[in-house]
C-alpha cells in the first residue's frame, strides 16, 4: 500500500465517533472514582487507545509505509526509557543499599602493625 491511500469515509467518521465516545468514557470514569493505581491505568489506557486510533486512521499509518510507524514507535520507546530510567533515581532516592558504608569497621583490638 502506498502513502497515497484515500481513507474511506466510514473510517474517518467511525474514528471520530469512537474518539467522542472514548472521551465521554474517560470523563465518566473520572466521576466514578476508581481506587488509586487503577484510575491512572484506566485513564492512560483510554488515552493510548485514542492516540492509536488517531495515528492509525487519521494519520493513515494503518495503510502507510511501515517506516513511518517505526519512527513513531521509536519515539514512544525512547520516551518510556527516559521516564523509566529517570524514575530508577527519583523513586529510590531514600532507599539506600548501603553500598557506601559496607566497609568493615576496623576491629577494636588488633595487634600493632607488624
Amino acid at each position: 500500500m502506498s502513502g497515497h491511500h484515500i481513507i474511506p469515509m466510514k473510517f474517518l467518521l467511525g474514528t471520530a465517533g469512537a474518539l467522542f465516545v472514548l472521551t465521554a468514557l474517560t470523563v465518566a470514569v473520572h466521576y466514578i472514582h476508581i481506587p488509586a493505581p487503577f484510575n491512572i491505568i484506566v485513564a492512560i489506557g483510554i488515552a493510548v487507545l485514542k492516540a492509536s486510533l488517531v495515528a492509525m486512521f487519521f494519520m493513515g499509518l494503518f495503510w502507510d509505509k511501515k517506516i513511518n510507524t517505526i519512527a513513531l514507535m521509536l519515539s514512544v520507546v525512547f520516551f518510556v526509557l527516559m521516564v523509566g530510567v529517570t524514575m530508577l533515581d527519583t523513586m529510590f532516592r531514600d532507599k539506600p543499599f548501603g553500598i557506601y558504608d559496607k566497609a568493615p569497621a576496623p576491629p577494636a583490638t588488633t595487634s600493632a602493625a607488624p
Binding site: 472521551t23 474517560t26 470523563v27 473520572h30 472514582h33 484510575n39 485513564a43 492512560i44 483510554i46 488515552a47 485514542k50 492516540a51 488517531v54
Partner: peptide, 11 residues
C-alpha cells in the same frame, strides 16, 4: 489527548 486526562482528570 494525553494532556486532558493527566491534568484535568486526577482523582
Amino acid at each position: 489527548i494525553f494532556l486532558f486526562p493527566l491534568l484535568y482528570l486526577i482523582d
